[in-house]
Simulated assay, not measured.
Amino acid sequence: MLEFLKVNVEDLEEYMKVKIDAFSEDVRVYGFGPTGYDEMDKLREAIKKFPIYKMVLDGKIVGGMSCFNQGNGEFWLGGIYIDSAHQNMGIGAKAIRFLEQEFHEAKVWRLDTPYKNYRNHHFYEKMGYVKIGETEPRKDKGGFYLYLYEKKM
C-alpha cells in the first residue's frame, strides 16, 4: 500500500538516504545535485516551514516531495524524488495527483527540472505540465540550466 505522509524528525535519516539515492543520477550527469539536497540541517529546518511528504510503500520510505504556496493560487513543486529501486512504478504520477488533491486551491503549479533530464521532461508533460522557459546557463556550474514547467488547473 502506498501512502503520502508528512515527514517528521524521526524519519530524517531514512528520508535523506532515499533523497540522496534519487538524485544520484543527477550527480553522475552534472557533477552535483540540487542545492542542499543532501544537507540534514536544511531538511530539519524545511520540515518546520513547508509541507514535505514521504512516500511510504509497505511501511518503507521510497520517495519524497515538497511544495510551496506562493500565494494567489500559485504553487511551486519544490521536488519530487523516488529511490532508484521504485522508479517507473507509477508512484510519481500518484504523488502528483495527491498534491493536486491536497492543495485543491492551487490554480497554477510550477516547477523546474534539469535540461538533460529527459525522463523528467516526459513525465511532467504526461502529467499535463507545459514547458514555459529556461533559466540562464550558469557559468559556475559548467553551463547547467533548468527547464521551467507550468500546469494550469
Results as ranks from 00 to 15, higher is better:
residue 3 E to M: 14
residue 150 E to W: 11
residue 116 K to W: 12
residue 48 K to Q: 12
residue 74 E to A: 13
residue 23 F to N: 08
residue 116 K to A: 10
residue 31 G to L: 05
residue 146 L to Y: 10
residue 137 P to D: 06
residue 66 S to H: 07
residue 9 V to R: 15
residue 43 L to I: 07
residue 62 V to I: 12
residue 60 K to I: 06
residue 120 N to W: 04
residue 55 M to D: 04
residue 98 F to N: 06
residue 18 V to Q: 01
residue 119 R to Y: 12
residue 13 E to W: 09
residue 110 R to L: 11
residue 47 I to L: 06
residue 37 Y to F: 10
residue 129 Y to G: 00
residue 144 F to I: 08
residue 86 H to T: 02
residue 141 K to W: 13
residue 8 N to I: 15
residue 35 T to K: 14
residue 75 F to V: 08
residue 153 M to P: 11
residue 112 D to L: 12
residue 44 R to L: 10
residue 41 D to L: 03
residue 114 P to E: 12
residue 72 N to Q: 15
residue 16 M to I: 04
residue 31 G to E: 02
residue 21 D to L: 03
residue 59 G to H: 06
residue 8 N to F: 14
residue 54 K to D: 00
residue 40 M to I: 12
residue 149 Y to Q: 03
residue 32 F to Q: 00
residue 11 D to K: 02
residue 138 R to L: 15
residue 39 E to C: 06
residue 76 W to F: 14
residue 36 G to P: 00
residue 139 K to T: 14
residue 66 S to W: 10
residue 117 N to G: 03
residue 140 D to K: 10
residue 27 V to W: 01
residue 20 I to S: 05
residue 70 Q to H: 13
residue 39 E to N: 10
residue 53 Y to P: 00
residue 11 D to M: 02
residue 26 D to L: 08
residue 75 F to I: 06
residue 36 G to N: 03
residue 8 N to A: 15
residue 68 F to C: 13
residue 60 K to Y: 03
residue 69 N to S: 08
residue 25 E to H: 13
residue 22 A to T: 04
residue 112 D to V: 12
residue 75 F to K: 07
residue 146 L to A: 09
residue 17 K to S: 12
residue 101 Q to L: 14
residue 96 I to H: 05
residue 53 Y to Q: 00
residue 86 H to E: 04
residue 102 E to G: 06
residue 99 L to T: 00
residue 63 G to E: 00
residue 109 W to V: 05
residue 121 H to S: 11
residue 151 K to V: 03
residue 104 H to C: 15
residue 54 K to N: 01
residue 50 F to V: 11
residue 53 Y to F: 08
residue 36 G to W: 01
residue 115 Y to M: 07
residue 35 T to M: 15
residue 100 E to F: 05
residue 81 Y to K: 07
residue 147 Y to I: 10
residue 34 P to V: 00
residue 150 E to Y: 09
residue 132 I to K: 12
residue 29 V to L: 10
residue 47 I to A: 04
residue 127 M to Y: 07
residue 104 H to E: 15
residue 61 I to Y: 03
residue 38 D to C: 01
residue 135 T to L: 09
residue 4 F to G: 03
residue 139 K to W: 11
residue 47 I to T: 04
residue 133 G to Y: 02
residue 116 K to E: 12
residue 118 Y to G: 14
residue 92 G to I: 01
residue 142 G to I: 04
residue 115 Y to A: 05
residue 41 D to H: 06
residue 116 K to L: 15
residue 48 K to P: 07
residue 114 P to D: 10
residue 131 K to G: 09
residue 113 T to C: 05
residue 81 Y to H: 11
residue 5 L to M: 15
residue 132 I to M: 09
residue 117 N to V: 07
residue 72 N to G: 13
residue 105 E to F: 08
residue 94 K to G: 03
residue 25 E to S: 09
residue 4 F to N: 02
residue 148 L to V: 13
residue 53 Y to G: 00
residue 48 K to Y: 10
residue 43 L to R: 05
residue 128 G to E: 02
residue 127 M to I: 08
residue 68 F to R: 13
residue 20 I to V: 13
residue 100 E to D: 01
residue 39 E to G: 03
residue 97 R to A: 13
residue 12 L to A: 07
residue 117 N to E: 08
residue 33 G to N: 00
residue 147 Y to V: 06
residue 76 W to S: 09
residue 1 M to K: 14
